[in-house]
Simulated assay, not measured.
Amino acid sequence: MNGNALGSTPKNAWHVTPTLVDMIRAPLVSHPVTLSSRGRQVRFDLQRSALVVVDMQNDFCHAEGWLAHIGVDVMPARAPIAPLQQLLPKLRAEDIPIIWLNWGNRPDKLNLSPALLHVYNPHGDDIGLGGALPISGAPVLQAGSWSAAVVDELTPAPQDICIDKYRMSGFQDTVLDSVLRNLGISTILFAGVNIDQCVLCTLQEANFRGYDCLLLEECSATTSPSYCLDATLYNVQQCFGFVVSSVELSHKL
C-alpha cells in the first residue's frame, strides 16, 4: 500500500498521503485450526484470534498472596501455569496477541462500589481490596503492586498486552473491547482463574458482544468446589462457546 500507515496495529490501519486517504485494510492470510470440542469439531482462524489470560496473579496463585492469606488452597489456581508455559511460546511465534487481563484497582478505590468491596470484606474488618498483606505489605490487587503482578512463572513478554480490570468481567469499564477490535479479533481463547468467576464472566460478555469464544480447559482452573468447575464447563459448551484442549492446540501449532 502507498502512503503513511495510520493505526495502532497493521491489522487496522489507514494509509494516507496529502491527496488520498486509503481506508482499505491489508488482507489477512487465514490460518485455519480445527480442534475437538465435546464430540464436535470446531474450526477457527488463528490469524483473527487472541489469547486472554485472566487473573494469573500473585494474590490468586502465590503462597504469600491474598487468597492464601485468607485460608484458600491456591494449588488448584496454579494448575494452568505449566500448560500456559507450553502454549504461550507457540502462540507468540505465530504472532498471536497475548492479553493479560488482571485485577488492578486504583489506590483510592474510587471506581469500586461498596457492594464490590463487600464481596471481599463482608464484615468490614478484614484485609479486603487495597488492604496491606501481612507478609509482603503489598496492597491487595492494587495496580502496580506485587499483589496484582502476574506470577513469575508466566512473566509477560514485551510484546504482550496488559489490561487492568476492576470487576469479574474484564469488559466492564475497561479498554478490552477497543483493543480487541483494533487487533481485528473475532475469536478469543480464554485461560486463567477462577474459571467459574472472572473467566466465565468475561467469556459470557465476550459472547454477548459477538466474539467467538473458546475456553482452554487445561489452562483454566478454580479454587471453588469441583461442582462449580463442572457447571462452568457445561454452561460454556451449552450456551456461550466451546471447550477445547490447549494440548491439542499446542500440537497443531
Results as ranks from 00 to 15, higher is better:
184 G>T: 06
210 G>R: 08
90 K>H: 09
155 T>I: 02
63 A>N: 12
47 Q>K: 11
236 V>C: 12
75 M>K: 15
36 S>Q: 13
33 V>W: 07
243 V>Y: 02
71 G>R: 10
73 D>K: 13
125 D>M: 01
126 D>I: 10
24 I>W: 03
209 R>H: 10
205 E>A: 04
60 F>N: 03
245 S>K: 11
81 I>S: 05
18 P>W: 06
96 I>Q: 07
68 A>D: 05
242 F>Q: 14
178 S>K: 07
33 V>K: 10
213 C>A: 08
151 V>S: 13
152 D>H: 14
212 D>A: 08
224 S>N: 10
217 E>T: 07
54 V>H: 09
3 G>Y: 01
30 S>Q: 14
19 T>Y: 07
40 R>H: 13
112 L>M: 11
152 D>M: 11
170 G>N: 09
246 S>K: 13
12 N>V: 11
68 A>S: 15
186 S>R: 01
142 Q>T: 15
19 T>A: 08
118 H>K: 15
224 S>P: 04
143 A>H: 12
45 D>W: 02
251 H>Q: 15
140 V>I: 13
140 V>M: 12
17 T>S: 13
191 A>V: 08
169 S>F: 01
76 P>Y: 12
91 L>Y: 02
60 F>M: 02
2 N>V: 06
17 T>Q: 06
66 W>L: 01
37 S>H: 07
119 V>C: 01
63 A>C: 00
240 F>S: 04
211 Y>P: 12
26 A>Y: 07
83 P>K: 06
90 K>A: 14
104 G>Q: 10
84 L>A: 05
72 V>Y: 03
90 K>Y: 01
203 L>Y: 05
82 A>E: 10
46 L>F: 04
30 S>P: 12
36 S>A: 09
113 S>Y: 07
237 Q>P: 03
159 Q>D: 15
244 V>E: 03
231 A>I: 02
236 V>L: 07
97 P>T: 10
90 K>E: 14
87 L>W: 02
55 D>G: 08
